[in-house]
Design a protein around this nucleic acid. Structure first.
Lengths: 217, 217
DNA sequence: TATTTTTATTAGACTTGTCTAATTTCTAAT
DNA sequence: ATTAGAAATTAGACAAGTCTAATAAAAATA
């Protein structure tokens, strides 16, 4: 049985290992979990003892099969609960993440499966992220950062990178949601900010923003 | 903001204050929360500091208005989640309690209200216990222990006192659920055990059992 | 009332997960 | 190759919540 804290570290390591970075370092984990690096070292020892991760300096932290299974189940629960909150309880995009962070830790044998069935086997959560299946399969969707699009390109939002309330509220303000169509009208070389057209409205967004939105096409 | 542990103590104090006992003593809390009495003393200090309870030796612990409000909200969430698990996810009577113990601590402003609406404003949880309303009102239903019924009486199960898996599984085995009709066929003076008729089957049950089932009529 | 038993309380220790402040080890650049 | 800066690690402390053992207070009983 894992503690809530352990589960959060596993989830963080999983998330980081999905990213492009070459290795999952203590520092990167510290940033993700929002704790001091010294705390991460302690937890790395603990998770290694429990055979949930391996850790070597050059290689960084890696989930064992057991650890990956656990992490996937947490991600699965998180995303299923998000669907529940969004579709059934009618919470908005920017409210569900925080609650799902709590709900993902609810322990019960087949909770994820029951929830999955009740929600009619959704494939994606409300932020566009794929929901891992019971057997551990985890569909990768082809997506690219908005920042990589060129002037004149048009694309559709498929997922977002950040789930902070600030960011989600900003998206709402820009009328951007999953499936929104975005056309790149201009790119300012000076700071890589973009001028985009969404639902007939022109907006200027920063590079940081463009690095937080995934699109397809 | 209260910790999970504080919430569990508040819930326990609330539960004990609803019972017939004259006061809520450290020992009774210790038993309810399943910790050592010394730990209770520490927590009493903490909850008193936070103005959630009062405590005097002769009088025992009592919830303040603020504490009662919090406790009621936890009970409300617990029972609403039980309805959700039972009706929507099709979990059985004896599986829902443990999960609801976790779900009751999910924090969000209007979660209880959204859930209430989604479940169509249920008045009772699957164990027959009333669900507190948003305004804090808490319907008392007239119920009596099965052990107080006489030979020849017939009655209906309205609630149960114990929620341990052992007990709930025993109920299932006896085909007893909320609304089940029970007829008292005999009472053995020696040990106060009862012979009861449920759905055409005669069973003999102990006094302890009869003290854990609430009936009406 | 005196004594026994139960209950309440204190003191001190332990665990988990965190921190800060060194210190060591790497990496990268001169 | 040396050194500055970054990253990893260790050591020691702290907060929350728990425990055991000892003591104080209250209640029950002889």
């Amino acid at each position: 049985m894992e503690t809530l804290t352990e589960e959060n570290y596993l989830k963080a390591i999983f998330k980081l290992s999905q990213s492009d970075a070459d290795k999952v370092s203590p520092t990167s984990i510290a940033e993700e979990v929002e704790v001091n690096a010294a705390s991460v070292i302690d937890m790395i020892k603990k998770l290694r003892e429990k055979d949930l991760i391996t850790y070597e300096k050059k290689i960084g932290a890696e989930l064992t099969l057991k650890g990956r299974k656990l992490a996937l189940n947490i991600v699965r629960k998180h995303r299923l609960w998000e669907v529940f909150l969004y579709e059934k309880l009618k919470y908005s995009w920017d409210e569900i993440h925080e609650m799902a962070e709590q709900l993902e830790h609810i322990q019960h044998d087949d909770l994820a499966d029951r929830l999955d069935e009740f929600l009619n086997f959704p494939k994606f959560d409300p932020h566009g992220d794929p929901i891992p299946k019971a057997n551990g399969s985890f569909p990768k969707i082809s997506k690219v950062l908005l920042s990589q699009k060129q002037i004149g390109d048009d694309c559709r939002v498929v997922a977002i990178k950040d789930t902070s309330p600030d960011f989600l509220q900003y998206l709402k303000q820009l009328s951007i949601e999953i499936e929104s169509k975005i056309i790149i009208k201009d790119r300012i070389a000076f700071d890589n900010s973009l001028v985009i057209l969404v639902k007939g409205n022109l907006s200027s967004v920063s590079e940081k923003f463009a690095n937080s939105v995934f699109v397809k096409q």
